[in-house]
Write a protein that binds this DNA or RNA. Structure first.
Length: 293
DNA sequence: GGGCAGGTCTAAG
DNA sequence: CTTAGACCTGCC
């Protein structure tokens, strides 16, 4: 992908981005710290920065950033080095997947921060996206650091394990963490004490997955999401209710009722590309309401 | 107002 | 080792 980057007053004007759609990227369930603005642009918080992106006719305007941050952070964050056209070809194993990849054509799997993914997906358990977003925003406002202002709005970083572990259960619960409160505090303490997130990132998928499941509130699905969205492991297949439904309805047709077996089914279908396959399938199923009674 | 939402934990069989 | 219930809260 050849990019043409022009420095402008508010940031950068970028041409040549392919397989890149803001709605697909931010609303496919992988990321929670984004805000859709009135002008249809998206503002996102990551790596201590505030970025706003607006789609124009033939380009994307990256506001509130510069060439250096684009090279150091955003190029990597948006996984721009990867050829998603090729990914889509590989995971289009049948007509359903062909449709799914066309539907979510602009999806990219963001390379997000492991620690933030751990807590975010603990919060995601049996929860809705608007609520997850709200809770994460409250936690950041209450316990993170102010990182700046954009368009008259203040933004805060997601607190570190050290900042989070000292919070009382009552305080944290006020952010809407509900029954997951003790999971979050337990995980924060354990992460701070063991300081082993970097180590887990270097482990092979299977081992890393087992390491993650040692933490409170992290089961099979949440650990797969952390691995995929925060640890660059693409051979995982997170099975949530939507993926379960679409696999059940389209492929296994009631023959498999076990979540673990559905996961194996997905991995058999996509192999090392399972994470990508899952994202296209998930986005397709959820946006279209497939399998919903 | 009852029912459920992008699971995990725990206690039993 | 597999399988029900409980778990908080907001929004139909």
């Amino acid at each position: 992908m050849k990019l043409y980057i022009e420095e402008i007053k508010s940031g950068l004007k970028i041409k040549g981005l392919v397989d890149f759609e803001l709605k697909n990227i931010f609303e496919c369930g992988q990321c929670f710290r984004w805000y859709k603005e009135e002008d249809e642009s998206y503002t996102v918080i990551a790596f201590g920065k505030i970025l706003n992106i607006k789609k124009e006719l033939d380009s994307f305007i990256f506001n509130n950033t510069n060439k250096r941050d684009f090279e150091d952070i955003w190029y990597n964050y948006f996984d721009l080095d990867r050829d998603y056209s090729e990914i889509k070809r590989v995971v289009s194993v049948d007509n359903i997947m062909k449709e799914a990849t066309e539907f979510g054509s602009g999806i990219r799997i963001l390379k997000q921060e492991p620690w933030e993914m751990m807590i975010s997906f603990i919060i995601s358990a049996r929860n809705s996206i608007p609520n997850i977003k709200k809770t994460i925003e409250k936690i950041s406002q209450a316990f993170g650091k102010k990182i700046g202002e954009y368009n008259g709005v203040e933004y805060f970083s997601f607190p570190t394990a050290k900042e989070l572990k000292v919070i009382s259960e009552e305080e944290l619960k006020e952010c809407g963490t509900s029954f997951r409160t003790k999971y979050i505090l337990s995980t924060a303490k354990k992460v701070f004490e063991t300081d082993n997130i970097d180590l887990i990132c270097t482990q092979e998928t299977k081992e890393a997955r087992e390491s993650l499941m040692e933490f409170s509130g992290i089961g099979p699905k949440v650990s797969d999401c952390i691995l995929l969205f925060g640890m660059r492991k693409y051979d995982v297949f997170p099975v949530d209710v939507w993926v379960y439904r679409v696999i059940d309805e389209v492929y296994t047709k009631g023959e498999i009722k076990n979540l673990e077996k559905i996961r194996e089914y997905g991995i058999n279908m996509f192999g090392g590309y399972s994470g990508f396959g899952q994202q296209y399938l998930f986005y397709y199923a959820r946006e279209k309401g497939i399998g919903k009674k």
